[in-house]
C-alpha cells in the first residue's frame, strides 16, 4: 500500500468503534442494520473520499445493502472495510468481503453473547438480585460494559488486518472477487433458509379424526423451506426482470401477511 492513501488515524478507528454502537439505529426487516452500518462509517468515508462525490455515493450505496451481523463484533468488519475503502479497493472486493463476513460474525456473536455468555451472567447475577443484593445488577452491568469496550481493540484489529491484506488482495483482485462472490452467494442461499420464515398453518381433514398439516406433513417432508426460497426468488425476479420498486414489494408483503393471518393460513 502507499502511505499517501492513509487518511484515517488511530483516533479515527477508536471513534469508529464507538460509532459502531449505532449499528441498529434504523433497523428494519428489509435491510436490517444497513442504515446504521452506513451511518457509523460515514464520517470516515467522508474523510476518505473528500470531494469525490461519486466515490462517496458508491460507497454509501454499497453499505446500504442488506446486512445483519452482531453488534458486538461489527467494529471488526467496519475497520476492515474502511481500510479497503482507504486504499480504493474495487467495490466488488469490498462488497464481497462484507457479504462473506457479516453472516459468520453474526453466528459467532450469537453463539458467544446470546447463547453462552447471557445464560451464564443471568444465572450468576439473578441469584444475587433475588437475595436482595445489588451485586447482581452491578456485576451484570460491569461485564457488559467490558464487552462493549472490547469493540475498540476489535475495530483496530479489523483495520490493521485489512491494511496488511491489501497487497495480496490487490494482486489477486479479479480472482479474489470471484472467490468472494462465490462465498457471498453460498451464504445468501443459507440466509434465505435461516431468516425468511413462512409457515402455513392450514390443516386439511382427510378422514375422520385425521388431518394433514400442509406445513409439517407436506412442505417439510417434500421440500423444507420451499416457500421462503420461492418467495425470495419471486422477489428477485420482480426486482430484476420487472424492475418493481422494493417499497411496493414491502407493502404487498405486509398486506398479504395480515390478510393470510386473518384467514388463518399463515
Amino acid at each position: 500500500m502507499t502511505e499517501s492513501n492513509k487518511v484515517l488515524t488511530k483516533k479515527d478507528i477508536t471513534k469508529l468503534a464507538i460509532y459502531s454502537s449505532l449499528l441498529q439505529a434504523s433497523f428494519n426487516y428489509e435491510r436490517m442494520q444497513a442504515g446504521g452500518f452506513t451511518l457509523a462509517q460515514l464520517p470516515f468515508l467522508k474523510k476518505i473520499y473528500k470531494d469525490d462525490k461519486k466515490g462517496l455515493s458508491e460507497a454509501m450505496k454499497d453499505n446500504l445493502e442488506f446486512i445483519n451481523t452482531h453488534p458486538n463484533l461489527v467494529g471488526f468488519l467496519m475497520g476492515l472495510l474502511l481500510s479497503l475503502e482507504e486504499n480504493r479497493e474495487s467495490r466488488e472486493v469490498i462488497r464481497g468481503l462484507k457479504i462473506a463476513l457479516f453472516g459468520p460474525l453474526a453466528g459467532i456473536g450469537d453463539a458467544i453473547f446470546w447463547f453462552t455468555l447471557l445464560p451464564i451472567m443471568v444465572g450468576i447475577s439473578a441469584s444475587f438480585a433475588m437475595q436482595g443484593s445489588l451485586i447482581g445488577p452491578i456485576l451484570f452491568f460491569a461485564v457488559y460494559l467490558g464487552i462493549w469496550l472490547l469493540r475498540i481493540p476489535l475495530t483496530h484489529l479489523g483495520y490493521t488486518l485489512g491494511v496488511s491484506a491489501i497487497d495480496f488482495i490487490k494482486e489477486q483482485s479479479k480472482v479474489f472477487s470471484k472467490a468472494a462472490s462465490i462465498l457471498g452467494v453460498t451464504v445468501i442461499g443459507g440466509l434465505i433458509a435461516k431468516y425468511v420464515h413462512i409457515e402455513v398453518l392450514t390443516k386439511i381433514p382427510v378422514s375422520e379424526g385425521h388431518v394433514i398439516s400442509l406445513q409439517t406433513d407436506f412442505f417439510d417432508k417434500i421440500f423444507p423451506n420451499i416457500l421462503p426460497l420461492g418467495y425470495t426468488l419471486l422477489m428477485f425476479y420482480l426486482l430484476k426482470e420487472k424492475r418493481v420498486n422494493p417499497v411496493i414489494l414491502i407493502l404487498i408483503t405486509f398486506i398479504m401477511a395480515i390478510f393470510f393471518s386473518y384467514l388463518g393460513v399463515l
Binding site: E30, F66, I192, Y195, V196, I198, T232, M235, L239, P246
Partner: peptide, 11 residues
Amino acid sequence: GILPAVGFGML
C-alpha cells in the same frame, strides 16, 4: 418473517 425475502432479492 417474510420481509427479509425482499432484502435478499435485492442482494
